[in-house]
Design a protein around this nucleic acid. Structure first.
Lengths: 205, 205
DNA sequence: GTCTATACTGAGATAGAC
DNA sequence: GTCTATCTCAGTATAGAC
């Protein structure tokens, strides 16, 4: 069991290699724009060989999104649990979300853009867990608003605004760009906390 | 000439009807996930008939994105020109952007999600005009920062953050949802102005 | 576990009748 | 301006050898 867990960033087994190549390909051309033949070519194998590891192209997409959600739910849980109080927790959650969307950019991008390519059954599974993730952010905003440290007109809308803003990082981030993930996260955290923090002396509007 | 201009929301000629059906279809299944046969079926015609109006499926996608960019560039220009001063102008630009992404939700969504489905030549044309649009927002932030009314750590990053946050409205907005476009725009304008406005008495961070 | 060969379906696009 | 018929190619997936 330990061996299979370690595999993620070390000696990748065949299924791992396939998923990684699929992430890159789907990200570049989209799910429907990518063929099993093209995916196989990137891996220097024949298309038929892919079917030994995955039952279908749809299964590959689902595996990618499912693992990405594992990472998101697990990560935000740890980040939030490590600190106390609504502002620190929101900072931690936003920071994690931005870093995840920079470091695991391609899979994170797919989790937003290829939902429509899932079968109904798979979509239900993915959406249920995505809702769970969003509830974490809504929860943080609600608690902060009730405690009087946040000023949030509409919790759901604010959560969507925060999440889509940070998720967008996956669409434009570049390894070779001007800003490192840490810098982007710092700025995003600052912007977001400014926009939800209650200002004692009269806020601009 | 007047007649063709009027057509957009009235008696749609064949090309118009095709574009509108394509917007709905591409939005739902993606460009590569949509076939000319399916598009034709939605219009109750045969696939071959589409080729009388458009030379290729790619031309349909390009026409959609091109027209959407017309709307964005034209609209933001008018919105910004109507008021004075960086805060009012940023408000107007954000407001327009949000309303556009709610009212013309599907085409706006495609302009973000289907760039990768364009041919290289078409992509160049679209990206050039999208850059032009983004420059409007960067310009507003720069002017406000220099005037001392905005506090913006990084103009480019802030512009990206604002735009991706507002563009995200096209991904989740629903006609039958809880909030009207106007309400969403109001809240977004408020959040964004809070996050960029310089606070004289010491800002939270 | 990967291959060759292939079944079967649907894709984009064109020709030419009406 | 829309149709029927069709070309050509690429798609997902399977069978069965090695």
């Amino acid at each position: 069991m330990a061996a299979t867990v370690v595999a993620t960033h070390e000696r990748a087994d065949a299924a791992e290699r396939i998923l990684r190549a699929a992430i890159a390909l789907f990200r570049e051309r989209g799910y429907h724009g990518s063929s099993m033949r093209t995916l196989a070519r990137a891996l220097r194998m024949e298309a038929a060989s892919l079917y030994y590891h995955f039952a279908s192209k749809q299964d590959i997409l689902f595996a990618i999104l499912d693992r990405t959600l594992d990472g998101l739910l697990d990560g935000v849980g740890r980040a939030v649990a490590a600190v106390d109080g609504p502002p620190a927790r929101l900072r931690a959650a936003v920071r994690f979300h931005v870093l995840f969307h920079a470091h695991r950019q391609h899979e994170a991008f797919l989790s937003g853009s290829e939902l429509r390519s899932l079968t109904q059954a798979n979509l239900r599974l993915v959406l249920a867990r995505r809702d769970e993730y969003e509830r974490v952010f809504r929860g943080l905003l609600s608690v902060g608003a009730r405690a009087g440290v946040f000023q949030v007109g509409d919790v759901r809308l604010t959560a969507m605004a925060i999440l889509t803003m940070c998720t967008g990082v996956a669409t434009w981030f570049s390894d070779r760009g001007r800003l490192a993930p840490e810098s982007i996260a710092d700025r995003y955290v600052e912007m977001i906390l400014r926009s939800v923090t209650r200002h004692p002396k009269g806020s601009p509007s």
